[in-house]
Simulated scan of single mutants.
Amino acid sequence: MDNYSQLLAFIWSTECGSFSAAARVHNITPSAVSKLITRLEDRLQVRLFQRGSRLLTLTEEGAAYLLSAKAVVDAMNEADSLAEGLPSRVSGTLRIHTMTTFAKHQIVPWLPEFLDLYPSLDVEIQLGAQFVDHFEQGLDIAIHSGVLPSSSRIAKRIGECEWLVCASPAYLAEHGVPTVPSDLLNHRCFNFSFVSPWSKWAFVQEGEGVSVPVTPSASFTQGDLLRDMALSGAGVVKLADFHIGPDIRAGTLVPLLEAFKSGIIEPVYLLYSDRKHLSPRIRVFIEFFCEKWRRNPWKVT
């Protein structure tokens, strides 16, 4: 592991003319320089210097090895110099895994602006309702809500979301407005088709938590289809505010049973694999979109 230090000590000693002079110039001890040279000679099984005079003299083997040593060090310095420019080079493919509705409503609206800023960067968005750790397969970023499985990934909390029971004004005008949670049993409801906390309709009534066993008339794997059903006036749905916030504000969907809300707030996390050596493409995405989400919060109220 010390081969590079041995090369440096060798080159410094030839340039300065002695171990002690090399030590003074590079702020290390003469004994440290001497030990590095000895290790180098032992490793190569050849003597590089003629000892016994005040100035170091290279052996024939030492003179030949000096050319190779300088080439190696020059190559290392060139590599380091190139690496210094990497943080400003945003290129390659950024791979993101997130929920379909989050991608559509919280990433896609600002994605063109982001791509204009970084024209050498390609973005690949993978969609799925549940967080799956695919970082070892090349994933750069994951964005998901709720309680995440324990892992060694870095999780940055970028916001929080609330799940709202809602329906369109047209549906409510025809079928009436539920006044207590149990009224939902007499309404046409739509739900997710997979088991998750999102598919449970929880409320607080008279200080106690209650869960309404809604039997969906139809169920879907995607929240956008639930939203479409609600907007069409077909029935009642439960969706996240980052998804339907604009619909609530526009009045095209109406939140229901507000007095019975459970008060459960879900954190939304941005996950990546390494804090210390953050790729430029990951860093600029985090900085850009966290600023967008800060300036454009999705909270309804």
Rank of each mutant, 00 (worst) to 15 (best):
M1D: 09
N3I: 06
S5C: 11
Q6L: 12
F10G: 10
E15D: 14
C16E: 02
S20H: 07
S20R: 07
T29N: 11
T29M: 08
V33G: 11
S34H: 03
K35T: 12
R39E: 13
L40F: 12
D42T: 10
Q45D: 13
Q45M: 10
V46R: 05
R47A: 07
F49D: 02
R51K: 04
S53E: 03
T57G: 14
L58D: 02
L58G: 11
E60S: 13
E60Q: 06
G62D: 01
V73Q: 06
D74T: 02
A75Q: 04
M76C: 09
E78F: 15
S81I: 00
G85S: 09
L86S: 05
P87I: 05
S88L: 14
V90I: 11
G92D: 05
T93V: 12
L94R: 00
I96H: 09
H97R: 03
M99I: 11
M99C: 12
T101R: 02
K104I: 15
L111Y: 10
L111D: 02
P112F: 14
E113H: 08
L115V: 10
L115D: 03
L121S: 09
Q126K: 11
G128Q: 00
Q130R: 11
Q130P: 04
F131C: 11
V132Q: 07
H134C: 14
H134W: 12
G138D: 04
G138H: 00
L139T: 01
D140H: 11
I141L: 15
I141G: 14
I141T: 06
I143P: 06
V147F: 09
L148M: 14
P149S: 05
S151D: 11
S151V: 10
I154R: 05
K156D: 07
I158Y: 13
I158H: 09
I158C: 13
G159E: 01
E162W: 11
E162V: 15
W163L: 13
V165E: 00
H175M: 06
T179G: 15
V180R: 07
P181W: 05
D183G: 15
R188C: 12
F190V: 02
N191D: 12
S196G: 03
P197F: 12
W201V: 11
A202M: 08
F203H: 03
V204K: 05
V204M: 08
V210F: 12
V214H: 01
T215N: 08
F220M: 06
T221M: 12
L225F: 13
R227H: 09
L231C: 15
S232E: 02
S232A: 15
G233S: 06
G235Q: 00
V237L: 13
K238E: 09
H243W: 06
P246T: 03
R249P: 15
A250F: 13
A250V: 01
T252N: 04
L253D: 08
L253S: 08
L253Q: 01
L253W: 13
P255D: 01
P255E: 00
L256V: 10
A259M: 06
K261Y: 12
I264G: 00
I265D: 04
P267W: 01
S273I: 04
S273T: 00
D274A: 15
D274Q: 09
P280E: 03
R281L: 13
V284L: 10
F288N: 00
C290Q: 01
E291M: 03
E291R: 08
K292A: 14
K292I: 14
W293P: 09
W293T: 05
N296Y: 14
P297Y: 06
T301V: 09
